[in-house]
């Protein structure tokens, strides 16, 4: 089993032979992997290959039919919802379409976990300060009073990122952060994800079907001096790749290993780079 040197033995996220089914359909089939602190993990796969289900299982939103899931060293497989909140408070998540509450303003949306997460509850003025800080991070501090329906798709995704990182989580999960966005907006979103990762050294798990996104996450780092992404020395970003195929883990390894693969399914993702 691969392990970064200087890492203690407890993975941030660990799946052990996890299977999830919905009405006869196996969404996840015997999936096992470990993600360690400070690592970036890219999960590639076609639509319906179980990527979203994997993230939701990691959050305890979906209970596996068999197998076990550990988060921060705690077994969450049979944990009751009330105890799961304490675990979820340490995880940031960006849902596929942003998952913003459309009856709440941007400020209320971003402040939602600070207001409602039982282990995080913070007073209104501190909440306001942290919300503004998170929105400044995604460069949307002028949208506090707006409703999600008044924002563009890319802006909604950025508000979603602000909400995911406002709690300063140790692990952030991104579900197809660039799906349905134009290339320029998609680049902005990926740059934010890399920035968040490198500024606070956060464990990042990103689900995507675009190899371009993976390319930036694996090969670039955020340069605070210029405020842009710059190419990172090989291996510095500690990015590992996984490919899901119809609920099964078809590949796990480094970028070089993935690109060297001759498997036609794996090559389909890599070839998109051009």
């Amino acid at each position: 089993m691969w392990r970064e040197t200087g890492q203690d033995g407890v993975p941030v996220l660990r799946f052990d032979r996890v299977s999830v089914s919905f009405d006869e359909v196996r969404a996840l089939n015997d999936v096992s992997f470990r993600v360690y602190a400070g690592e970036s993990r890219v999960i590639l796969g076609a639509a319906g290959s179980g990527k979203t289900v994997l993230l939701k299982t990691a959050l305890g939103l979906i209970k596996p039919d068999s197998g076990r899931v550990w988060v921060f060293g705690q077994d969450i497989t049979e944990m009751p919802e009330s105890e799961l909140f304490a675990i979820r408070a340490r995880i940031g998540v960006l849902f596929q379409e942003g998952g913003l509450f459309d009856s709440l303003t941007v400020e209320e949306n971003v402040g939602y976990p600070l207001e409602n997460q039982p282990s995080l509850r913070c007073p209104p003025d501190e909440r306001r300060r942290r919300v503004e800080e998170a929105l400044r991070f995604v460069e949307l501090e002028h949208t506090l009073e707006k409703y999600p329906s008044e924002l563009s798709g890319g802006m909604r995704r950025r508000v979603g990122i602000a909400r995911a990182v406002v709690t300063e989580p140790e692990l952030v999960l991104y579900d197809s952060p660039t799906a349905g966005l134009d290339p320029i907006t998609a680049y902005t979103i990926i740059a934010l994800i890399v920035k968040e990762r490198d500024l606070r050294n956060i464990t990042t798990i990103m689900v995507t079907h675009r190899y371009q996104d993976a390319h930036f996450l694996a090969g670039f780092r955020w340069d605070p001096a210029t405020g842009r992404l710059v190419p990172a020395p090989a291996g510095q970003t500690r990015t590992r790749f996984m490919v899901l195929r119809e609920g099964r883990l078809a590949f796990e390894g480094t970028r070089a290993e993935l690109e060297a693969s001759r498997d036609p399914y794996l090559m389909k993702f890599v070839r998109r780079e051009g």
Partner: peptide, 17 residues
């Protein structure tokens, strides 16, 4: 609508039942 746009999942992920 909240269910199909993942707002229910978001709610659970962000600390409310």
């Amino acid at each position: 609508s909240m269910k199909v746009t993942e707002q229910i999942d978001a709610m659970r992920a962000l600390g409310t039942d």
